[in-house]
């Protein structure tokens, strides 16, 4: 029992979901929101992000490594649970299930999204307003992107709730209840920001 590292992997998984992946998500959604201010505004913001010094290192260590560790370990966690909403149809049990469903869906969405934008950029495509406009002109992709953003913001907000429990911040039932309300607020705010940005490309 004593030699296992599972506890530490789980703690690392919880930490990385918020820092840096969650922080990056917020930053990404906010930069996307420039799209609501017009083509020029978005392209400028995108070029600033593109032109950041040490960009590749930042991307690897702040985004890809933590993101894919969180995602792959998360899939393992998701598939070791045996969901039982029929016996226990409580709010928290549904959130437990949704966290696993959105986790897997977000992994699919994010991987596709990286393929279509970042990998495409590495192959020479220019990431700008026009690129997103052409992706989102397909109604199927528009629906996929909206679902992907909602799934991601849900997974982040609900994950923040369990992050607070896992790190021993919210212990009492009342503090856990209040953090539920706060994280619902965060979910609504981030979803609004994300969807407004998507719709700006349509």
């Amino acid at each position: 029992m004593a030699n296992s590292r599972e506890f530490y992997w789980r703690r690392l998984h919880s930490l990385l979901g918020v820092i840096p992946v969650g922080i990056f998500l917020i930053q990404h959604l906010i930069v996307n929101h420039y799209a609501t201010r017009g083509v020029e505004s978005f392209n400028n913001a995108a070029h600033v992000m593109e032109g950041l010094p040490f960009r590749l290192i930042l991307e690897i260590f702040i985004i890809f490594v933590p993101l894919y560790f969180h995602a792959i370990y998360g899939v393992y966690i998701a598939f070791t649970s045996r969901n039982n909403p029929r016996q226990y149809g409580t709010f928290r049990n549904w959130m437990f299930i949704m966290q696993r469903v959105t986790g897997v869906f977000t992994l699919i969405f994010v991987t596709w999204h990286i393929w279509e934008t970042r990998i495409a950029a590495a192959m020479g495509a220019d990431v700008n307003f026009g690129m997103m406009e052409s992706i989102l002109s397909d109604p199927f992709m528009l629906a996929f992107y909206i679902a992907g953003v909602v799934s991601t913001t849900f997974h982040f907000a609900n994950g923040l709730w369990s992050f607070l429990v896992t790190w021993g911040v919210t212990i009492s039932p009342s503090s856990q209840r209040i953090s539920t309300y706060v994280t619902i607020g965060i979910f609504l705010a981030l979803t609004t920001i994300g969807i407004r940005a998507i719709l700006a490309f349509v």
């Binding site: 599972e6 506890f7 530490y8 992997w9 789980r10 703690r11 966690i77 649970s81 039982n84 016996q87 226990y88 409580t90 928290r92 049990n93 959130m95 437990f96 299930i97 709730w161 369990s162 429990v165 896992t166």
Partner: peptide
């Protein structure tokens, strides 16, 4: 570490 907070 294996608790998933379903709170059942």
């Amino acid at each position: 570490g294996d608790c998933g907070n379903s709170q059942n």
